[in-house]
């Protein structure tokens, strides 16, 4: 388990949506390797397939074709994939997710929201450092506040903490700053960068915001479900 080994390997994957008789290839034959410790940003115009790709890499969705290997395990090959419960197991061991919206439970405090995942699943050894995690995310003074008392940036940081309590190896972030102003967006970018550098967390980020994308170490451009040139 060295820091440089591949954690996600996608080979010529496709994701085809059927809309009536029409078939749309949202991801159209894309190959990609994500190594442990990567910080990669995906950019591209609306509809270019960024969300679709992130969902495939994060095992939230199944490819229509191609091969996908996650953590050494073949998740999909030539139209055959793992069952939903097998995917759930991979997801909870490996991935944390954040989205444009935060989906915090408004009647639970910050600390309680962050602890929710443990009600359903606790990875071995997880949960020892929840306070440290909150501190790292700049939330130490906010633990007993309700979400409504927080700023948007703080709410997203709570969502990040919640995604990280079970110590995932990969954090998938789809437009995490879509609801935030540019200053707050960059703040979140710095948080992700710090987690990547200090904890070795693998981060996959989808964003429209070029400035935010620049906090990543690698930027991959998408267009019509394929890679455009890397910048």
């Amino acid at each position: 388990m060295k820091a440089t080994t591949a954690i996600i390997e996608a080979e010529n994957i496709k994701r085809i949506y059927k809309r009536g008789a029409e078939e749309i290839a949202a991801i159209d034959g894309l190959s990609l390797t994500v190594n442990r410790g990567d910080f990669t940003a995906f950019v591209g115009p609306s509809g270019s397939g960024k969300t679709t790709l992130l969902n495939l890499l994060g095992c939230l969705d199944n490819p229509s074709a191609g091969k996908l290997v996650v953590n050494g395990r073949t998740v999909h090959e030539n139209g055959r994939g793992l069952s939903e419960s097998q995917l759930t197991r991979i997801r909870r061991e490996l991935f944390g997710y954040i989205f444009q919206k935060f989906y915090l439970i408004p009647t639970l405090t910050v600390l309680e929201n962050v602890l929710v995942p443990f009600t359903f699943f606790r990875k071995e050894g997880a949960g020892q450092d929840v306070r440290q995690l909150l501190k790292k995310l700049g939330l130490e003074g906010r633990m007993n506040h309700l979400p409504a008392e927080l700023s948007g940036g703080e709410m997203q940081r709570v969502a990040i903490a919640r995604a990280l309590v079970n110590r995932p190896e990969v954090l998938l972030a789809d437009e995490p700053t879509g609801n935030l102003d540019s200053e707050r967006s960059l703040e979140i970018g710095q948080v992700l960068k710090k987690l990547n550098e200090e904890e070795g967390l693998t981060v996959l980020l989808v964003t429209h915001n070029i400035e935010l994308a620049r906090t990543a170490r690698v930027i991959i451009g998408l267009k019509d479900g394929k890679r455009s040139q890397a910048r």
Binding site: I105, L115, V116, F118, T119, V130
Partner: peptide, 22 residues
Amino acid sequence: MKVKNSQKISLFHIAWKNLARK
């Protein structure tokens, strides 16, 4: 400052707080 390993919120607590939302 360590949070105890047993720190966890119960399903009951979540259910109760969900009802309190509306």
